[in-house]
Amino acid sequence: MPLAAGRASTLIEIQVSTETRDPISNEPIQTWERFCQAWVSVDVRRGGEYFETGSRYSQTIQVLKGDWMELKDVTPGMRVVMGIPERVLDIKTVLPENDLRTQVRLECVAGEGAR
């Protein structure tokens, strides 16, 4: 069943990483390019802070749900850019919903030290 009107109220941009080489030093340079845009619903699952090696980090886990036709080629390792000011979320899992492939769930992590 497609998302009901008004449920997918957030426009996101999915970006894919590309790597080029610096022509002088031959060092790798990572850049991000637009892969697609889609309307999604956002569900913040959990957030928190933790300590690791003497430093404090925070992270938020969010689930984005959108139309399968718009998000079918999205893979883990891509990222989501959304909102003003822009927030960047790393896509960790891509799960098609079990309703005849009409929706896709993107499980994303944001924050300092996102793992």
Rank of each mutant, 00 (worst) to 15 (best):
E52I: 03
F51V: 13
V74L: 01
M69R: 00
T53W: 04
D73R: 09
E19R: 04
L11W: 10
R34E: 13
A38Q: 08
G47K: 07
L11I: 07
L71V: 06
E27Y: 12
D73E: 15
E52K: 08
E19M: 10
I12S: 00
A38D: 10
R21A: 13
R79D: 00
V94A: 08
I24K: 07
G77N: 10
F51Y: 09
P85E: 13
D67Y: 02
I12Y: 04
L89P: 02
E27S: 12
N26R: 11
V63K: 13
Q62H: 10
M69P: 00
I12W: 05
V80C: 05
M82V: 05
A38W: 12
S9R: 14
R87C: 03
L95T: 15
T53E: 14
T18V: 07
I14G: 00
G66W: 05
D67H: 09
V74D: 09
G66Y: 03
E49Q: 14
D43W: 01
K92N: 01
Y57E: 06
G54Q: 11
R79M: 00
P76R: 10
T10F: 04
P76N: 09
S41D: 01
G48A: 13
E49C: 03
V94Y: 04
V63N: 08
I84G: 00
E52V: 04
V94S: 11
W32V: 06
I24W: 05
Q62C: 15
L71S: 08
Q30E: 15
V16A: 13
Y57M: 07
G48H: 10
E70N: 09
S17E: 15
P96W: 02
I91T: 02
K65A: 11
Y50M: 10
S55V: 03
L64W: 11
I29W: 14
Q37Y: 11
L64R: 00
L71R: 10
R79S: 00
V94P: 09
V80K: 00
R21T: 12
T31G: 14
Q15V: 08
M82D: 02
F51T: 12
Y50D: 11
V42P: 04
W39F: 13
I14T: 04
L95Q: 15
G54D: 12
P23N: 12
